[in-house]
């Protein structure tokens, strides 16, 4: 089960925060197909937001084909976003953890690391297609909300 966190000061619309948190959980394998999302009632009781905001987020996830409502039962995950390349024991992830450790050792903070990752993504996107294809994990570039 996922527990939502709402940040009033993030500048990201509240329903999008919920959408992004579900996607993040799907990427990390915290949520898997068949899992049930919390009811709107449970979410609003914990986060103190308008129930319509939760319903809007769930509708958006449904539109993207990630969840489906089952009448009388709740909203269920239908598709996973997790990739074996991103799993906890994957070489790509281990490389990145090494790299982040080196970055920290070199004195870079979280913001610096995030900025570097953004820059690297932009640089890779600008490369000729052939050069980039083998190493890129996905075709879709993460949006801003996903990375901050």
């Amino acid at each position: 089960m996922i527990e939502f966190q709402v940040d009033r000061h993030s500048g990201v619309a509240t329903y999008l925060q919920l959408v992004n948190q579900v996607k993040q959980a799907l990427r990390l394998g915290v949520l898997e197909p068949g899992d049930r999302l919390p009811t709107a009632r449970a979410v609003v009781e914990a986060t103190a937001i308008n129930p319509n905001t939760v319903l809007k987020a769930y509708r958006e996830l449904e539109r993207e084909g990630l969840v489906e409502p089952r009448p009388g039962q709740g909203t269920f995950v239908t598709r996973s976003l997790s990739r074996p390349e991103a799993a906890a024991d994957s070489p790509l992830r281990a490389d990145l953890v090494d790299w982040v450790t080196r970055a920290h050792a070199a004195g870079l903070g979280r913001e610096d690391v995030l900025a570097l990752v953004e820059a690297a993504l932009a640089e890779a996107a600008a490369r000729p297609r052939g050069a980039a294809r083998p190493t890129r994990a996905g075709t879709e570039r993460p949006s801003r909300e996903d990375t901050t």
């Binding site: 009811t39 009632r41 609003v44 009781e45 308008n50």
Partner: peptide, 14 residues
Amino acid sequence: RHEVTGLLMAEVAD
């Protein structure tokens, strides 16, 4: 405040 608001929103959802 958070708790009371959550309580209210749950009633709205119900």
